[in-house]
């Protein structure tokens, strides 16, 4: 953990070197997700509710999703850029250093320009929390925190799987973006609006709904069952195949070298 902070400091120093670029990128990141926010806003300017969710409730959903995603992106950017790391031979360097590989990839890249997105998520969350009509008792606060934390770990696992895939193929990984960026975009609305089948897919295959839809129902008192409070923690099982797949890819890399 202390070593992670040291890496953190060196990345911060590096990115401070390019101030203008840093602020412009952060600003554009902010702008991009702001359009997503506008999308939700205009939608509700025409309709009062989507699938029974009001504007403020949807905003709560939108901002937790965005928060989870941007946290994962700030910290796990190394996995996002993993194909480049493999190509440039930077990964071989990681292999000759006496530290855990996943840790090293995690620490290899940190992207603070993504803070623009994080900031917006925080702002939207600050607006939605009092307006959503939720009575914030301890169990609700706990659930909301779990949604954000587990959500970012799920996105992290998806990044990990994406990285592991690049051990096998250099290009054609765009389809993973359907799950990560797509998950973020579609996650603006509660997943139930996309229909039964999509919801089932997002529950049992790629468990995005476990930290978005079900705990949201609990927050909004649509479900009283305490189980829904804990579904975000269930979604963490994705980390197991994620790590296993990465290790498998690594073994293959060591025997093929490309």
């Amino acid at each position: 953990m202390r070593l992670y902070l040291k890496y953190f400091a060196i990345h911060l120093k590096s990115q401070m070197q390019y101030k203008v670029s840093f602020f412009l990128t952060a600003l554009s990141q902010f702008a991009v997700s702001f359009t997503a926010f506008l999308g939700v806003y205009f939608m509700f300017a025409r309709f009062n509710a989507v699938d029974g969710f009001t504007y403020e409730q949807t905003l709560l959903c939108f901002s937790t999703m965005l928060m989870a995603f941007s946290l994962a992106e700030v910290f796990a950017r190394g996995f996002d850029l993993f194909p480049q790391m493999l190509g440039s031979g930077e990964f071989d360097r990681a292999l000759v250093r006496p530290r855990n590989i996943i840790f090293q990839v995690l620490a290899a890249k940190m992207d603070f320009t993504r803070l623009g997105r994080l900031l917006q998520a925080a702002a939207a969350l600050c607006y939605a929390i009092p307006k959503s009509g939720v009575v914030w008792a301890w169990d609700k606060i706990f659930t909301l925190c779990a949604m954000v934390i587990c959500g970012s770990i799920v996105f992290f696992s998806l990044f990990l799987i994406y990285a592991a895939l690049s051990f096998f193929t250099v290009e054609g990984l765009e389809f993973m973006n359907v799950l990560t960026d797509g998950g973020r975009e579609f996650g603006r609305y509660p997943f139930s609006i996309y229909g039964e089948n999509i919801l089932r897919f997002l529950t049992f295959v790629v468990p995005l709904a476990l930290f978005q839809y079900y705990p949201l129902l609990y927050l909004l008192d649509r479900m009283q069952n305490k189980f829904f409070m804990f579904t975000p923690w269930v979604s963490l099982v994705l980390l197991i195949p994620g790590c296993a797949f990465f290790r498998f890819g690594l073994r293959r890399y060591k025997s093929t070298g490309s």
């Binding site: 060196i10 120093k13 590096s14 990115q15 070197q17 390019y18 440039s88 031979g89 930077e90 071989d92 360097r93």
Partner: peptide, 9 residues
């Protein structure tokens, strides 16, 4: 052929 130093610091 490759560097192990951090480029900007």
């Amino acid at each position: 052929q490759r560097s192990q130093l951090w480029w900007d610091v």
